[in-house]
Simulated assay, not measured.
Amino acid sequence: MRLQTINKLKQAGLKLFAKKGLAATNIKEIAREAQVSLGLIYHYYPSKEDLYLSLANEAMEKSQGVADQLNRLESSIRDKICLFIDAFLHGVQKEDGIYYFIIISQSFETGKRDEDQQLLEKKLQSIRNLAALVQQGQERGECAEGDPFQLASTFISATQGIASFKLMFGEQFTLPDKEILIRILLK
């Protein structure tokens, strides 16, 4: 029962934070969406900021998990990047998947300086990890020329924008062809 309640709270928070942002979401809305009492939320999360940080960290852990899987693969940089793009395009077509992408891309300030800074560092590290992959690809002649960090930042920005558009426009938005995303990083 406990895990079921936490899951309901997370799903409600994830949906509302992705659609409205941290500042515009209030704890009563989360309770209503999760169909639980306000007191029950406070039993598990002292504030909406704590729930948000939990979800944002979970989103970053999922993202890092994908990156770790790709790094363990014995394949070309091109294949790794193509697999990442495939996973992204598949993920933004699922309701909770797109919410996680949006949570990762949001600018936030919970008022918990240390936790905010740690989360920001995780986000920055994910760009550095992709930049390292791009640099390896450049050394092997697989990736586009240019500053690896700028290429990685541009790519991440594009994927986050695509996720935002998909959430905003729903079925009216057509995901871009995989080749368009590939051209940002690969030759």
Rank of each mutant, 00 (worst) to 15 (best):
A34W: 05
A34N: 04
Q35E: 13
V36W: 05
V36Y: 03
S37A: 12
L38R: 11
L38G: 01
G39Y: 07
G39L: 03
L40Y: 06
Y42D: 06
Y42C: 07
Y42N: 02
H43P: 00
Y44I: 11
Y45K: 04
Y45R: 03
P46A: 14
P46D: 06
S47I: 00
E49G: 14
Y52E: 04
Y52V: 15
L53C: 06
L53S: 08
S54T: 15
N57G: 14
E58I: 00
A59Y: 10
E61G: 08
K62D: 14
K62C: 13
K62I: 15
S63A: 15
Q64K: 10
G65A: 08
D68G: 02
D68W: 05
D68Q: 09
D68V: 15
D68P: 00
L70Y: 02
L70K: 01
N71E: 14
N71G: 06
L73S: 00
E74Y: 05
S76W: 02
S76F: 03
S76E: 04
I77F: 01
I77L: 05
R78W: 01
D79H: 09
D79M: 06
D79T: 14
K80Y: 04
L83Q: 08
F84K: 05
D86N: 13
A87Y: 14
F88W: 05
F88P: 00
L89D: 08
L89S: 02
L89N: 05
H90L: 14
G91Q: 13
V92F: 08
Q93L: 10
Q93T: 09
Q93G: 11
K94T: 15
Y100G: 05
Y100I: 06
F101R: 14
I103G: 02
I104R: 13
S107E: 10
S107N: 06
S107Q: 10
F108D: 01
T110E: 00
G111Y: 11
K112G: 02
R113T: 15
D116F: 13
L120I: 11
E121R: 11
E121Q: 14
K122Q: 15
K123M: 11
Q125C: 02
Q125H: 07
S126W: 06
I127C: 03
R128A: 08
N129Q: 12
L130W: 02
A132K: 08
L133R: 01
L133Y: 00
L133N: 00
V134M: 03
Q136T: 07
G137Q: 01
G137F: 02
G137D: 03
G137K: 02
Q138T: 04
E139V: 07
E139M: 08
G141Q: 03
C143A: 07
C143Y: 07
E145V: 10
F149E: 08
Q150T: 13
A152Y: 09
A152Q: 06
T154L: 15
T154F: 12
S157Q: 10
A158N: 03
T159H: 00
Q160R: 10
I162M: 05
A163L: 10
F165V: 05
K166R: 13
K166Y: 09
